[in-house]
Design a protein around this nucleic acid. Structure first.
Lengths: 314, 314
DNA sequence: GTTTATCCATAGGATTTTCCTATACATGAA
DNA sequence: TTCATGTATAGGAAAATCCTATGGATAAAC
């Protein structure tokens, strides 16, 4: 906008309030650390912008005009708003508060986030999180579009302008119905899957890629009719003996009571894993908020998840 | 304060909001009527002042950082406040709204102000008035000290830096008890007052001066034991036959039922009057508010008071 | 793979604003 | 009158802001 805006400037408001409080130009100018003529000028400029005399100049000090009295609270309010803004900025800057918009895939979020959020809330009560849920592909899209700041998902990702951070690696296990021929095995190998019907999540999920690849290698049959959107749904399908699938170890720990379900998980002899981590836009930099989140996640991985996963930082 | 204030400037806030709304530097700069580099600089300066990156620069447009999202509503709030301030200034400027602090002496205010305020409220509902009451001397002191803006009082005044405006002149009448020897007279002259006991308000009232002067001229006796602070009190004293006094015609009209009171008012053959008007500090100028008040007062004088007073403008 | 287009950042110089010193003007006090 | 106090004005210095031109980085087009 042109040099002469019709709005009062912060400076003018500050000077005006100082003048009203000091009661004199000289003293107000002194308090503001400027010369009296400068103050005079700014007040005159403010009066000109508002089209009103704000102060009466009188021997022994100034008096606000009726208009000045009406303006004073407004000026104070505006300045308070600005102060609050600066204070908020400092708070955000210190990393103790802020709002992070989180995205998570249903194959990880429900089993990891609660513990991480609890930890984060303990160490930084000022940090608020808004979480959304969806297939990784959609989450990445949201992330790139700026609709969320941080996504918890399976790694690796291919997007070039996303920063990524691995959190841990967890085993994938073969899940079969209790009465399935493989249910009694202590281990399986890829070869055991030959000819098996395999269920999967939709192609928007990273797990889908792993399952599909495994099917190709093992010459198993990927059942395409149904593609779930949650591990729970997948487990139901397995329980109904519609096929086998791969389920992550952490999910099994949290959702499947040991040896007491309709689904049995059998480990692979040669370890099959998935990597879990977070991603954010490189252009976001590395705000304190993200560091705080990563610290909380690392803490959870290093305590509650210890011995269940492979810590895989970097 | 030093050139580099720690507060964001209005301009920066405007640019920031515009950028957030436009989604691009170029477009935002265009909307603000400045070049893109200027916008760039101001945004960078704002980020530097707040110690935070506020926007992510990305191909195809910008995205607010978490901190930027928190700041945006604050920035909007501050700008709204400033807009309101400007709007309020315009409203005040137009004279249709505002607050006038009024002072009135008890010998005039209670009988004139209600009608004036009613009129003023009809024609300018946005104007608010705060009234205070007290002896003229105190009111003038309040006026000079800036504790009120306009005083309704008896004129003339001696203060040099007060602007004065006469409103009307009203007769002063001799008030005596019903059974007083002079009560039956249709007229009195100064000579009739010789030896009479005269009551007065305190010396802080202008009426006191007139009564005292009359006593000197007529060789009447000014009763000093009691000095009331209201015409009502004075009337009570007269009714109890403690002496006579002067009462203004408007007061008598509004407070004394014709020929039906304990006090009788007798006019002077040679007119004795007092002048009523308003005063305000010259340094206040002549704000619209005062003009509006004067207009309302003139209207009342010219209608309700017609034939009872001498219009005495100027 | 190179080119082009788009978008933001940076640089240097012009313009505007703000500030300061010095001084003038106004008013009440001595 | 002269002095003291308090604000306004003038002129030049300093700072902030703006503009044009250009650089760098990335996505789209060829």
């Amino acid at each position: 906008m042109k040099p002469t805006d019709d709005m009062p400037s912060m400076r003018q408001l500050r000077y005006f309030v100082a003048l009203a409080e000091a009661g004199q130009y000289r003293r107000a100018a002194e308090r503001m650390g400027i010369s009296q003529p400068s103050l005079s000028q700014q007040i005159a400029a403010l009066e000109s912008r508002l089209g009103h005399r704000l102060v009466e100049r009188r021997r022994g000090g100034i008096t606000l005009t009726p208009a000045g009295r009406e303006m004073l609270p407004h000026a104070r309010g505006i300045l308070n708003g600005a102060s609050e803004m600066v204070a908020l900025a400092q708070t955000l800057n210190s990393g103790v508060a802020g709002t992070l918009r989180l995205g998570a895939t249903p194959t990880i979020g429900p089993y990891m986030l609660p513990a991480v959020l609890r930890r984060l809330h303990e160490t930084h009560p000022g940090i608020k999180l808004m979480a959304r849920d969806g297939p990784p592909r959609d989450m990445i899209e949201d992330l790139l579009a700026g609709r969320c700041d941080l996504v918890v998902t399976q790694l690796p990702l291919v997007a070039a302008d996303l920063a990524q951070r691995r959190l841990y690696r967890e085993p994938l296990m073969l899940a079969v119905a209790r009465d399935h021929p493989l249910a009694a095995r202590t281990h399986v190998t890829t070869g055991d899957l030959a000819g098996l019907d395999m269920l999967s999540l939709g192609p928007a999920f990273a797990l889908h890629g792993q399952i599909a690849a495994l099917c190709r290698d093992a010459e198993a049959r990927l059942v395409g009719e149904y593609e779930g959107t949650s591990l729970d749904a997948l487990r139901q399908m397995v329980a109904m003996n519609m096929g086998a699938t791969l389920l992550p170890a952490l999910y099994l720990r949290s959702e499947l009571p040991d040896d007491d379900g309709d689904v049995v998980a059998v480990p692979f002899r040669s370890s099959l894993t998935r990597t879990v981590g977070v991603a954010w836009r490189r252009s976001l930099g590395r705000p304190r908020l993200i560091t705080q989140f990563l610290d909380a996640a690392d803490h959870v991985v290093g305590t509650a998840y210890r011995d269940r996963v492979v810590r895989d930082r970097g």
